[in-house]
Nucleic acid binder design. Structure first.
Lengths: 322, 322
DNA sequence: TTGTAAGCGTTATCAC
DNA sequence: GTGATAACGCTTACAA
């Protein structure tokens, strides 16, 4: 691997000059520049980012903590974020926390070791102090951790409201909300939105907690079987909704004639199955963009306009509602 | 951020001594060790991996190139690989190539800049020379690139055979193979295995190419509608199979009574839907383990036992076959 | 058993 | 415009 010294030698200039041309910084004669460029080309020289980082105390690496990789929503988010960061000429160090605090803490140390420039955090961590003491810019996704850690989330309250309004508009009278773990803020917000509309209309409804990763089909079946007069279901994820659809079928219910169903996320799969799923779409695209761009501002010491951004969600009407 | 100098000062020793204790290398008195450890603790010192890497010319970072993150199979693979690498005290720099050569090349340069120690490559790249000239250990997954780049793949020929044998054993007479893009080696191997068994038994069959990421449901429907006497289908992914199931339903076919279906991958979803999918299971677990462990050997200059490892697949019989 | 100092590949300051 | 050179934080001969 050629170093800056090799280039300098070949071009008959000093390393300082080479550094100037590779960084387009400071004065350098056009002719010498040519010389240097030629040498760089000949040696296939690539600057060592490690050395550069050591000096600059920043690594152009962004650390990202995700709860899971196999959940479509997170995978999509990661895909978008990776795309944007590489375009900003930053790279991603990925930590799959598996929803496990120890793993998070372990990676926090790693982030420190590598002089990570910024952190994108998808976690409902309680160890906020650990993060803050790192003194690295952070943007949280899906969770409003504290007042002073910027965050971006979908407007989950709106999501709940949209679902409730739709279900009311098509005449539902008894509703079930199959939600995620109610310890999670997005889940709580959706519940708030959903309930607020329904309570206003005095429509019976209740929420049932499920695991996002592995919703128990047995639990769902039980709830459905003991609420056979239910005519509308709101689910906190499309995966849950797909499970619900199966259980409804087993219970002899037709969708959307007997029971109407709304999911959340708008994953690819929701379009494959018939009946195609009506769902609340989160814009991973917008969330990802906002997260990265805000983090860039934070890293550059620029002010940010809003500490807690909400991204609107939309109702995608398909075949599981009338 | 405290540095090694700060620790040395506080412990009243030299940086060399501190270095020795943090690396457990060379002689150091138990008492001085205590002193140093205390200082480290007090200052919350974390060694700067960038500086260390610069000296050692290795970064404890592994680069991984994946075609997509939103495909369940790749997500699962990545999840496993991330878990193993962090246990080996290595971190992952993730490149989502989006099946795009330019992106791969871009990341190759990044890998170089960061003194990446090894590369896990999931790509059917043709630019093998670019990789080789990097002089970084590589392990390829799913693709046998050249004789001298180690690889690990599922035994795809076996997968095709198992599917064919099962379908024959339940009496199928006319088969369709909805496969992935036939430019991919795994796809070609599955076809070879599948056809070899069927041709021996003189059973009619043909293959139809689909995109893995977005299989056209329209194409599938057309193929099915013009082959209504088909009684068995082998799909190169569970996602394709799930699509096929939908099309079969639309065509008025019952599964498994009229048509039997076998998928590939054994993704979580294949268990959710009824009828539950019979499928060929790839062990992402074993593939991931083999890949990382082999890469470790390569990085340590150890010999590896086998250049092209095949991991057996198994038939998981569920409800879409008799 | 411990310390000194050179060196890893850069960047930036300061002379010239 | 250009070139020495110190510095970034660490490891490792080598000397003591």
């Amino acid at each position: 691997m050629a170093t800056i010294k090799d280039v300098a030698k070949l071009a008959h200039v000093s390393v300082a000059t080479v550094s100037r041309v590779i960084n387009s910084k400071g004065y350098v004669n056009v002719l010498t520049k040519e010389l240097v460029l030629d040498a760089i080309n000949e040696l296939q020289y690539v600057p060592n980012e490690l050395a550069r980082s050591l000096f600059k105390k920043q690594s152009r690496i962004i650390g990202i903590i995700v709860p899971h990789l196999t959940s479509y929503y997170f995978a999509e988010l990661l895909e978008i974020i990776e795309d944007i960061t590489i375009n900003f000429n930053y790279r991603l160090m990925v930590c799959n926390s598996q929803d496990n605090k120890e793993r998070e803490t372990k990676y926090l140390k790693v982030f420190q070791q590598y002089n990570i420039d910024g952190i994108i955090l998808i976690s409902n961590t309680t160890r906020i102090q650990d993060y803050k003491s790192l003194n690295i810019p952070i943007i949280a996704i899906d969770h409003k951790l504290t007042e002073d850690i910027p965050s971006v989330t979908s407007n989950n309250v709106l999501g709940g409201k949209l679902a409730a309004e739709k279900l009311i508009s098509v005449g539902c009278k008894k509703l079930i909300h199959f939600r995620g773990p109610s310890v999670l803020m997005p889940v709580r917000d959706r519940t708030i939105g959903f309930k607020s509309v329904l309570d206003k209309h005095k429509i019976y409804n209740f929420s049932f907690d499920l695991d996002f990763k592995n919703p128990s089909q047995e639990d769902i079946q039980n709830v459905i079987n003991s609420n056979l007069d239910c005519d509308g279901v709101f689910c906190d994820s499309d995966i849950i909704a797909l499970n619900v659809l199966q259980c409804l079928k087993k219970a002899g219910k037709r969708v959307p004639e007997d029971v109407q169903v709304i999911g959340f996320d708008n994953i690819e799969l929701s379009r494959i199955f018939s009946p195609k799923l009506t769902t609340i779409s989160q814009s991973t695209e917008k969330i990802g963009h906002y997260a990265v761009e805000t983090l860039m501002k934070l890293m550059n010491g620029e002010p940010i306009d809003k500490f807690h951004q909400q991204i609107d969600v939309t109702l995608i009407e398909r075949e599981t509602t009338l």
